[in-house]
Nucleic acid binder design. Structure first.
Length: 345
DNA sequence: CGAAACATCCGCCACT
DNA sequence: GTAGTGGCGGATGTTT
């Protein structure tokens, strides 16, 4: 398994395509502070000292200068849209008024970016900007549930999916309201820099831990009703109930009604990890929970997580978390533990 | 710690 | 021709 090194995965281009270094968020008068904030949090902080990838991040507008957010405060935008010319990812955090057609310069900028092969991400009502540019024609898309019907009505060629947190279709990623933007941003990081970097950033943001491990759990799990497009999510849930006696990869494939080979492929496509590597992550996470929240001994915890003895647990816990189980329990707790786990191994 | 037995992963390729 | 599937085998990783 080679998904555990930040340095290697951060510098190399992973399996899924182009590098991700240059990120631009486009804003306009009435910009949504939270949606923009999410993008800034994921891509705009320099965490390189901790071994995270560094993004060349900028906020741009058609006309640089002061822009008033929907919350009333003013931000000073330094860049104009020429800044998007070298972007690997262009983000439309939201659009202040879906009845107002975005300026042609903005539409041109994202069309050019997409034509160049850059990725384009929208959050919430930002999907209307992508749709106005014609980029979503014939593609699946997500937006805030309040706007889903309207988006489908105005742009009949867009296949609006109202159930998911975000949708990836080709180079385009569209996400639902506000916080779903976090999931979409992390998804893009996961593809470009690997699941482990994405998970670590998620930890750093103190996003609930059950969101880690892959999109299958939440992309394919609709907000209102439960539906699993390929049965993967159900299998993941099932595996979680028997971590003390972990199923083999073949068992999981059987449960998913797929051949082991296809199961492994599906698994990588949706989670960015391999079945066994993911399973180990789950077992170590369970151990982590038990170390914090129970009085069980290391041996007992090891057995509860499917290890034959403390040695196996120690090896994997240390590798994946950077400290031994003992040290973790003894030295760290609560907030400090979160801080510790944010560091590369 | 190493060794041996066992499981997983992934490129390759034939097949639908 | 293109796209998806799944078997195979050797390198690699895991368990005992």
């Amino acid at each position: 398994m080679r998904h555990d090194g930040f340095m290697s995965s951060a510098s190399a281009v992973p399996e899924s395509g182009r590098p991700l270094r240059n990120v631009v968020a486009i804003v306009a008068e009435g910009a949504a502070a939270f949606e923009l904030g999410v993008v800034c949090e994921v891509f705009g902080l320099d965490r390189s000292a901790d071994g995270f990838p560094f993004y060349d991040f900028a906020v741009a507008a058609v006309e640089p200068g002061p822009i008033r957010t929907s919350s009333g405060f003013v931000i000073d935008v330094e860049h104009d849209l020429s800044r998007t010319a070298e972007a690997d990812l262009v983000v439309i955090p939201a659009w202040h008024d879906i009845d107002v057609r975005p300026p042609e310069a903005m539409l041109d900028a994202i069309r050019d970016a997409a034509a160049r092969g850059a990725r384009v991400l929208s959050v919430c009502s930002g999907a209307f900007v992508l749709a106005a540019a014609g980029l979503l024609d014939g593609r699946r898309a997500a937006t805030h549930w309040r706007y889903a019907d309207l988006l489908a009505e105005r742009y009949p060629l867009v296949r609006v999916d109202a159930d998911v947190l975000y949708v990836e279709d080709g180079p385009l990623v569209t996400s639902a309201g506000t916080a779903a933007g976090i999931d979409a941003c992390l998804h893009i990081v996961r593809q470009a820099q690997g699941a482990r970097v994405a998970n670590a950033i998620a930890r750093r943001m103190v996003v609930p831990p059950h969101r880690e491990g892959g999109q299958a759990q939440y992309v394919e799990t609709p907000l209102p009703r439960l539906r699993n497009r390929d049965g993967l999510g159900e299998v993941l849930e099932w595996v979680r109930t028997c971590l003390d006696n972990p199923p083999s990869v073949d068992d999981m494939a059987l449960r998913a009604n797929m051949s082991p080979r296809t199961f492994a492929r599906r698994f990588r496509e949706t989670t960015g990890s391999t079945p066994h590597a993911w399973l180990l992550q789950q077992r170590v996470q369970r151990a982590q929970e038990l170390l914090e929240g129970s009085e069980l001994g290391i041996e007992q915890i090891a057995r509860a997580c499917g290890f034959a003895g403390g040695a196996g647990l120690r090896e994997h816990f240390t590798r994946l978390r950077g400290v031994s189980p003992q040290t973790y329990r003894r030295t760290f707790g609560g907030r400090e533990a979160i801080e510790l786990l944010s560091r590369p191994a």
